[in-house]
Amino acid sequence: MPKPRPRQTAGAIALTLAASGSAVVIQPLAPAVAARVNATCVNTAADARTIQAAIDASKEGDEVVLKGPCLINRTITLRGRRTYRGDAKAGTVIKQADGANLPAMLASESWVTDQAYSSDPVRIERLTLDGNRDHNTGTVGLMLRSWDSRIYDVDILGTPSDGIRVSNPSKNGTKLRNTMVNSVISDVYIERAGGSGLKVVDPGNAVTDWTFQRSWIGFSGESGVEAENSAGWTFSDLHLYATPKNAIDAHRCFGTSIRDNYIEDFGTKAAARQTYYGVRCDLQGEAATTISNNRIHKFGNMAQSRTAQQDARFVFLALDDVNYGRGHAAVTGNTILGHGTRQETGLLFRRGRGALSVASTGNLVDNVGVPRSIGPGVRLTSGY
């Protein structure tokens, strides 16, 4: 998968020429000195202007420090090559004002301005976003359209839509002409998102090679993780609980790693004749995916489910399609525990439109109605 070439700033490459007799000495310009830019909120609707003014006044390399409880009524545009930091998650709470109905609370600059290229890197840490879901609609907490970024130690609570969305299309639907890769989201807590906890929107092939790790997602309105493009992604050490639909729904897996996740429950608001997944991948050809050491449970009362949600199905781990070519996957060391009903399938392997080779070893599948379902034409190996 192609990677973007990092763009150098003028300060990093500009040279000055100084005459010294007959010799010419080439000297690099001194780099700009990073500064701290403070944005102090007073918990009124003017806070959005205060924050944006501080960001707009900052320079590349600066740290924008957000202080105090903040009330916002407009989307905050995050300019690239800056760090955005709160004093602490409990001390820096950014809340959406009643009735603001923002498309996003914080958003990468290229998403806001509808550019065809991803924004430069950002770092966001040590703050809380409160989407005020009871008094707003349609709002994403953090809208990312920046490459090589770092999101760390952030709480995102009560967003009307997705907690975090990584988006190829911009605000008006402009698609990227380059790639948006190499970012890390870590140690975040997402609760009561009206949509999915993390959603990846990528109708092209731009959003690849990210890591989402060591985080908690609970009581979402839809899925825990929903990714239209999972190529090169790592989803690891996630704790996903009380998920109405799918815990991890990963599409276009290509060199993807899904490992060491704890799924407490999924399909908690199942509807009749629908299928819900603990971990799901559909595969691309040409690269191998690994799904390992996940703990997948269905803690809900299945007796009640059979009465209230007739014909709903629950699949704990599925490879259910190959989009092209031959898909390759290793499914190892996963632990699956269900309620022993006909509605539950432990492992499901289907080749769909392509061919599928699976090494399935060392998995514990216990107390489910169908321990393993293998479709025609799937090549199953025991590994080496």
Rank of each mutant, 00 (worst) to 15 (best):
V315F: 04
G61V: 08
T16K: 13
A35N: 13
D265V: 08
L142Q: 03
T243Y: 10
S220T: 14
L317K: 00
G194M: 03
F219K: 10
N334Y: 05
R342S: 12
V42N: 15
T83H: 05
S230L: 01
H135A: 15
P6N: 10
L29F: 02
S220K: 06
K67D: 14
D56L: 14
T208L: 07
G86C: 03
S149Q: 01
D98Y: 08
N168C: 03
Q52P: 08
Y384D: 00
I374M: 04
G377N: 04
A14C: 07
P160Y: 00
V322D: 00
T234Q: 14
G362H: 02
D148T: 07
S236T: 14
A272Y: 07
I374N: 07
K269T: 09
R165C: 01
D187K: 11
Q309I: 00
S360F: 00
T335M: 08
A330N: 13
V154G: 05
T268E: 07
A308H: 09
R5T: 15
L238R: 02
M302E: 06
T275A: 05
G158V: 03
V42C: 11
V112C: 03
N293A: 06
P121S: 07
Q115V: 05
C281E: 09
G352P: 05
S119C: 02
H328W: 13
T307I: 10
S305W: 11
G91M: 05
H297K: 11
M302V: 04
L198P: 02
F235N: 07
I156T: 07
A53Q: 15
H135Y: 12
A53I: 15
D47K: 08
D56N: 15
P4D: 10
Y324Q: 15
A45C: 12
Y189W: 11
D282Y: 00
K3Q: 14
Q284P: 06
P376F: 09
A88W: 06
T16W: 15
S257H: 11
T137Y: 09
L29H: 09
R326E: 15
S196Y: 09
T256C: 00
I190Q: 01
A45K: 15
Y189V: 14
F254E: 10
Q27G: 14
T345C: 03
A330C: 13
T44H: 14
C70A: 09
R372E: 12
I151N: 01
I164G: 00
P31Q: 12
D366P: 10
A231F: 00
G383K: 01
G232C: 00
E63H: 11
S236M: 09
L102N: 06
D148I: 02
E228D: 11
A88E: 07
Y324H: 14
K269D: 11
V154D: 00
Y241W: 15
T16N: 14
G80P: 05
N301G: 10
L317I: 08
A116K: 12
I374C: 04
S22H: 14
Y277S: 05
A250N: 02
V25T: 14
D130A: 09
I336V: 12
V65P: 12
A250R: 01
T174D: 04
